[in-house]
Amino acid sequence: MSISSPPRPRQSTTTGYSKAAERKHRLAALDMKVSPYLFISPFFILFLIVGLFPLAYTAFVSVHDWNLIGGQGDFVGLKNFTDVLTQPRFYTALRNTFSIFLLSSVPQVLFAIIVAAILDQNIRAKTFWRMGVLLPYVVAPVAVSLIFSKLFADQSGMINEILGTFGVNPIRWHADPLASHVAIATMVNFRWTGYNTLIVLAAMQAIPRDVYEAAVIDGASRMRTFFSITIPMLRPTIIFVIITSTIGGLQIFDEPRLFDQAGQGGADRQWMTMTMYLYELGWGTQKSFGRASAVAWLLFLIILIIGAINFMITRRISSEGKR
């Protein structure tokens, strides 16, 4: 079920290769041997060009003194990495990225499961409701940012205006670090919760109904079937959703960049994420493509580590749930 387990060895011995001619047999064997690689090759060829080449290129850049425009300078070893790691801004960016990531991914996955569970019932007008939850996904991030930065304006925004009518003091969406993270996470959640809901729903629908029937016959409550059947059966999908949202979440760029007019993450960099930091180093006044590349590689490693941790935790939780 999980992504790394080998396929079940169902290559049965009952098939009739023996009936086939010798040549045909050899061709078939070759087919079995080569085709799997041929089938996955388009991805790897394309990745080689548009993924690995830039990655190798930036690895090379990251150990050089490298101006974005001026190009290659001296070889400096790991200096770019140590420079970046000693700057407080790196840690600000790290803090912001994780804060926004947690504020978006955790509620997103939870809501996706809950809403999917609601949609998984025998409701009327299924199509309508399902399309309804996916609606935000078709709104471009640029548009989402334009809309939400109006809604979240500190003095003139609708959200503070509404809070004001309930006597709540205006929240300083752009000044306060946590508030700005919440606002940005809201944009992300708005766009992606429905999407994840449908992925989870698709997985729920794929669970054979007779499994439930058996549980009901055994007298299991609805809650119990949900936690001991649905959730474990959703394991691969939940891993999938968590991994993709981790990867996407840690690279978040569009929404925080467009959260104000300056696009640098606030006067105190209170909502500057790692990718924005990378961008500021490379395209900002420093134009240090070397340092930016170092940050890209650090971010890459962080994502890999978090991804691995995520994977292990999710695996453990869902296998415990199975028991």
Partner: peptide, 22 residues
């Protein structure tokens, strides 16, 4: 370096006057 440094001062002004977090 003008652009980079003047940007630091603008940030300082915004922290104290607009955000009032400092």
């Amino acid at each position: 370096n003008y652009f980079g440094i003047t940007n630091l001062i603008t940030d300082a002004i915004n922290r104290a006057d607009v955000d009032q977090t400092d």
